[in-house]
Design a protein around this nucleic acid. Sequence first.
DNA 1: AATTTATTTAACCATTTGGTTAAATAAATA
DNA 2: TATTTATTTAACCAAATGGTTAAATAAATT
Lengths: 206, 206
Amino acid sequence: MTEQQKDTEQQILKAARKVFIEKGLDGARMQEIADEAGINKALLHYYFRSKYKLFEMIFQEELGKFFPKMVTLMSSGDISLEDKIRAFVSNYISIFISNPFLPSFIIKEVHRDPDNLKSFFVKSGLDLNMIRLVITNLAKQLNMSFEETRHFMINMISLCIFPFAGRPLIEKILFSEDKSEYNKFLEERKTVVADYIISTLKINSK
Amino acid sequence: MTEQQKDTEQQILKAARKVFIEKGLDGARMQEIADEAGINKALLHYYFRSKYKLFEMIFQEELGKFFPKMVTLMSSGDISLEDKIRAFVSNYISIFISNPFLPSFIIKEVHRDPDNLKSFFVKSGLDLNMIRLVITNLAKQLNMSFEETRHFMINMISLCIFPFAGRPLIEKILFSEDKSEYNKFLEERKTVVADYIISTLKINSK
DNA sequence: AATTTATTTAACCATTTGGTTAAATAAATA
DNA sequence: TATTTATTTAACCAAATGGTTAAATAAATT
């Protein structure tokens, strides 16, 4: 594969990423992807045989971003639990600040075809056993049951993700459509959410 | 309008609700709505002129469910703050247990066309000034700034909604696709989330 | 029974869309 | 320079889709 080809391929993937993430599989148009990539439809199909093939690549890629090294983070042993939580929340929110439409995209597509989901897990580097192990270990540290720890993890993730998934609504209702204020708000949440989570732990440990 | 007509109209709306909520505007097919309603496409268009007109009615209706009497609840003065929170969380989660795809539907459509959102607010019974007033009052009770209270409200809402929006993912990863266990989990959250929220308040008030 | 109204049938239309093809052209490589 | 490769052009195709129409039929109303 020549440099040129690599370049074009990357340009197509970049364009596809943008269009798919914004509009989803159903809403995306191959013509729009071609336009965005600065090429024509014929060449687009010359590189990627079908819309769905192209979509699969993007979805897999983005699913990988959605589940970052959180496993690594939450399981590494040499920092305090409090610092782990702060690092996790801050990194996770940072990912979404860089990829603001990632949450709504994943939610959309995961609901569109829930049955086909599992096949994407392995390919996007998701290890189910590892995740369960992390939760089990966390449960020990927190002196909680597995079930309680699961609530805990989902609480943490909810607090990180939802402000991105519901942004258009929240921004209009509670921020008077002020985008820069909303960005500030999202930035604040790196510490607000972490503080919040940690404060509940201190109560429980008493 | 005869009873017959009312009946058919309701049947169409019911079918449209189901299909639109599951597949969104882009993914829904008029033929599928007709089939679901047990009628044909001609009659469907005889009752509702276009796909978008029909969609608008459904979206507006569902947006109304998405913002329930939470304003009423959080502002009524004769119960303690703790009880208000418990009632709000429990009622809010109940709504989503009855309408499991409501969150993903709203998230999907709100991202598809954010600009057109505002025009739906009034029609679906949403009073922006009222909401801001509720937050201001809440802020006084919590002895917090408006900004902190906004975080607080969004935390509460995030914890209620996200487990529905992300269900296909969470269920597969953390619940081994066990639907009934997930339903139990959602039911549990009525108290888990409320406890969680209230526990953070107790710390803050010290 | 006559008439109006609701519903079906089924053909049809225009547009959009994913995808293909073959020839022309530009760019890189041997 | 000759040849291979990447890209464009533009016409084309088949299927899907939203929407229409007109006539037939069934059901309710007068």
